[in-house]
Design a protein around this nucleic acid. Structure first.
Lengths: 242, 242
DNA sequence: CTGTATCCGGATCGATACTG
DNA sequence: CAGTATCGATCCGGATACAG
């Protein structure tokens, strides 16, 4: 019961791309992660069985190439040329969804761990001060979630335990507000005004904080991005993680 | 178990667009049909239950608008502005699939009725002779399938029974070959040479037949993007785009 | 004619246990 | 660590019957 019994390219494409979770797996692969458990980081609720099965399918149809352990353990999953060219489709889908469905965030869509993960990747290092800054994030009504971002111009790290350098800036936030900021549907200034985010620390860091946080790349393509203020310079590209 | 638990626009978009059969339903709505059973024509194996359910979902998320019977029976299903803007995503998917997966046609992908349906819609009326031409299609090893195309510059009709005007041109074809022609992976000339299509009728009609048949729009998109890429390469002569 | 509700078999998915 | 096999619960989808 796999296919649609059609020769139409949209149907053939949907057979491989529009299977459940597949667009997200392709999105992750486009971002860069190549190992099984790296991929799982960006796919919070996926089971290992399903990810494994999808990777097998994607390899079979020529979107993914599985390479033998180059030096570490396990395999490397890389997109083939065909897979990389799915970028245009993923972008089109993301851009559409940014414009039309990203505004209404239900509690089910919120995920502090995932949020911190993407915020880390989009930190605008060029706006950081020369010295290292440790920012401690906590989320209201979710005491179990605590994160530390260690920010340096040369490297950004996300920790799940106090890294021990001392904390320079405390961020106490509503998950929803910080998510909206990442989606460029709310400015840091507005969130502070409404009390949905509280910053504690030296004034220069409190002032600069907004310039450190990046936004989703899908906001860039949308005509409707509301929060395009002076504080938001062009987005930086993704940086490599090791 | 509906959503993916993510705020990422790609995930939100996939929740609504990448559900099974949904890309095809959107594709059909983009083409124009607005009534329930018109939609089913382009979705051969879909059950009424599933189409009904998907239309309800699409209406709920704001992609489809259900209008009360304007004059006929039943409802009209129209894309909203949000739905129409999915065009870019459908095109991206179709263009990708045309390039990467449309070549390998399995018997399961072939469907004479659907093929005739899309050929009818893409007839290049500007190349037709002034007088009416009736073309009778038959498919090898599928004696149950017989179709008549009544071609006029002002109107094209597909019939499943002899319309009674007499037949001007007989086409006896391998389903696969005619499908490949529609996908622009094979020319009529080559198919004739290989004996995969046989034309019977006056020489002027046999010669002109190739110019009446159109090809999938995704072939054109693909050629255009190839041209665009070529134009960016330094060694290729310039071509203007509008 | 234009859908909708129900039922049931098969497909899918996550948890668990297991292997290299 | 990096997956894979198995199994049971859940979900999906087509057939059928039914309603406007």
């Amino acid at each position: 019961m796999g296919g649609y019994g059609q020769f139409c390219p949209v149907a053939r494409g949907a057979e491989v791309f529009a299977e459940r979770r597949t667009p997200l797996i392709v999105r992750e692969l486009l971002r860069g992660p190549a190992h099984f458990n790296e991929l799982r980081c960006g796919l919070p609720r996926i089971s290992r069985s399903l990810l494994s099965e999808r990777l097998v399918t994607l390899e079979r149809v020529g979107i993914v190439e599985r390479r033998s352990p180059s030096k570490g353990r396990g395999h490397e999953y890389r997109l083939t040329k065909a897979g990389r060219e799915l970028d245009a489709t993923v972008r089109a889908l993301g851009t559409w969804a940014y414009k039309w469905v990203s505004r209404d965030l239900t509690p089910d869509n919120l995920d502090p761990a995932l949020l911190m993960w993407v915020i880390e990747r989009r930190i605008r290092v060029e706006n950081l001060p020369p010295q290292r800054v440790v920012v401690h994030f906590r989320f209201r009504r979710l005491p179990a979630h605590a994160y530390w971002l260690v920010l340096e111009r040369t490297e950004v790290d996300l920790c799940f335990a106090d890294p021990g350098f001392g904390v320079d800036l405390f961020v106490d936030a509503e998950v929803k507000a910080l998510t909206q900021i990442y989606l460029a549907h709310l400015t840091v200034a507005a969130a502070l005004r409404r009390g949905e985010i509280t910053l504690t620390g030296p004034p220069e860091y409190r002032r600069a904080f907004a310039s450190w946080i990046g936004v989703t790349p899908y906001a860039r393509d949308s005509l409707r991005s509301v929060a395009r203020t002076a504080e938001q310079a062009p987005l930086v590209g993704s940086r490599s993680r090791t």
